[in-house]
Amino acid sequence: MAEPFHIGFLLFPNLTQLDFTGPLQVLARLPGAKLHLVAKTKGPVETDCGPFLLADTDFNDCPKLDMLCVPGGFGIDQAMQDADTIAFVKRQAEGARYVTSVCTGAFILGAAGLLKGKRATTHWAWHSHLARVGAEPVKARVVRDGNLFTGGGVTAGIDFALTITAEIAGESVARAIQLGIEYDPAPPFDSGAPDRAQPETLEICERRYAGRVADFEAALAAALG
């Protein structure tokens, strides 16, 4: 019997729910996958849209992971300043076959020193800050640099998960999972990227994110010392 492939998702308060559940839905179907929902303490973790997720293990009890997956969300401001969280990420990354993030989860990897000299991506509104953690910013839905996989904003987590599934189990398995979840996006508007969105749409988003980005900048400065 093949050994289980241990995948750990880092959970922290105020994470973006789809950053986590998008990849989860794909990676749960990876043959041999053993999933671990890891937080500083076991129990409920509130997301940015209200519902709670249930962490089934904590940093001390988490087994050695084959894949570490770090979602994003506004809660990264606190998570990347938490010494226990960063120590856990560093420890697991040392032995993992794959180190991954979705959206602004990249900055937790960055705060752990794992993006230095690496090509990486993140949510478009935070993308320009990747250089501050030593990364080479790349504008793409999914970016690979060695065993590091980073996904863009929120929905790019599904693309990331299918990409890494193909790497691990082969393209035919990834294609079958894509069909199984009927991932066939056909959005009603072509506004999913800043270079295609109408100017007024981009302005609304930038105005909405302005305060959040300012808070993030201060938190990142504190995290990097």
Rank of each mutant, 00 (worst) to 15 (best):
A2F: 08
F9K: 01
L15V: 04
D19H: 03
G22F: 08
P23G: 10
P23Q: 13
L24T: 03
Q25S: 05
Q25T: 04
G32M: 08
G32S: 04
A33I: 03
A39R: 08
K40T: 00
K40I: 01
T41D: 15
T47F: 10
G50C: 13
G50Y: 14
F52K: 12
L53P: 02
T57N: 06
F59Y: 15
D61F: 06
D61V: 02
M67Q: 08
M67P: 02
L68H: 00
C69W: 11
G73P: 07
D84F: 07
R91S: 09
R91N: 10
A93W: 09
A96R: 06
Y98C: 08
V99E: 08
S101P: 00
S101M: 09
A106T: 11
G110T: 09
G110V: 07
A112N: 12
G113Y: 12
L114S: 03
K116D: 11
G117D: 14
T122P: 05
H127P: 08
G134L: 09
A135V: 02
E136R: 05
L148A: 04
G151C: 04
I158M: 03
D159I: 02
F160T: 01
A161G: 00
L162A: 05
T165R: 02
A166C: 08
A169I: 05
V173K: 07
A174P: 03
I177H: 06
Q178I: 06
D184H: 07
P188T: 12
D190F: 06
D190L: 05
P194M: 15
Q198S: 09
T201S: 09
I204T: 09
Y209V: 05
A214S: 13
D215W: 12
F216R: 00
E217P: 04
A221G: 02
A222E: 15
L224P: 00
